[in-house]
Computed example of a mutant assay.
Amino acid sequence: MKNPLIQQYRSFLKDTIRKQIDFSKTDQNRGIDPPPIEKPFDEDAVIIDLANAYSLKGIPGINLSDAIKNRKSRRAFLNKPVTLEELSFLLWATQGIRHKIDSGHAYRTVPSAGCRHALETYLCVLNVDSLEQGVYRYLPLEHKLVFEFTEDLLNRKIVEAVYGQPYPGKAAVTFIWTAIPYRMEWRYDLAAHKVIALDAGHVCQNLYLACEAISAGTCAIAAYDQDAMDRLLKIDGIDEFTIYMAPVGKVKN
């Protein structure tokens, strides 16, 4: 390997760092309470109810083998809205809670290292029935949405933030996952960061498969302007920052 930087950055993909950590000194093993599994929201915030994930009537369902067989990245979307029930299903499929254990742990519909779930789900909503355009955040504990803010020219700004890739500007909704690293660092210290990235992959694959059940498609985006995306979401870029994105829209059957 001629470029030493390539070798250096490959080390992120390995698990050798685990041997350098004294796990007796992690915040978990020092007896510090775990961070909450959901960001707080203001009491006077606008909250939107979502459809009960276990009694969805407008989701036809699909054989799992067919969903896997048909799964592909889709970038051409129809000018049709996603329904609120369909959005409820996609949110449950990607970050829904099956069972809350305590204030710091919950079993979800996706795996996470140590049950830490360091991700938050934001939505850039452009064409969802019953929702005005704007940025929302999923509240997995309540299975509800909190309205964060509206933004002029939101479709243009999100395209600019992904270096001109056009499909988020034409999607019905773009899922934007942020990482809150301390949720994972509390347990794993310096070994936290690789598994946060792995967790994001678990979440996005569930979104791909769930889209197949509602005649929709998605395409994961990992190329974006970090500062621009964090500014768009109004997050600090230090203790919380954008890690992955996926626009969703209706597609031809």
Rank of each mutant, 00 (worst) to 15 (best):
I176M: 03
R30E: 02
A118G: 10
I158M: 08
V135N: 09
T178N: 07
I221A: 05
F12Y: 15
D102Y: 12
N63C: 05
A53K: 11
E38V: 13
Y107G: 04
G201K: 14
T94I: 04
K170R: 15
A67G: 06
L5P: 08
R156V: 07
Q28A: 07
R71S: 01
H202C: 01
L50G: 00
K2S: 06
L190D: 09
A228I: 09
Q20E: 11
M1A: 07
A171C: 02
E86I: 05
D129F: 03
A67R: 05
A179I: 04
N206E: 13
E132G: 00
I47E: 09
I6K: 15
E148K: 15
I6R: 15
E43W: 14
I196F: 04
L119M: 12
H117I: 10
I48H: 13
N206C: 08
S130M: 08
L154K: 09
D15E: 15
V162K: 01
P166L: 07
W177Y: 13
Q165K: 12
N127Y: 08
P181I: 03
I59Y: 11
Y224F: 15
I48N: 10
F241C: 02
D22F: 03
P4G: 02
V146Q: 06
H202D: 01
I6G: 08
K194I: 00
S65G: 04
G237V: 01
K80P: 00
A191Q: 10
G164V: 07
F149W: 10
P40G: 04
Y107E: 14
I6E: 15
C115A: 07
T218L: 05
G164E: 14
A45W: 12
F241P: 01
L131E: 03
T174W: 10
Y54E: 12
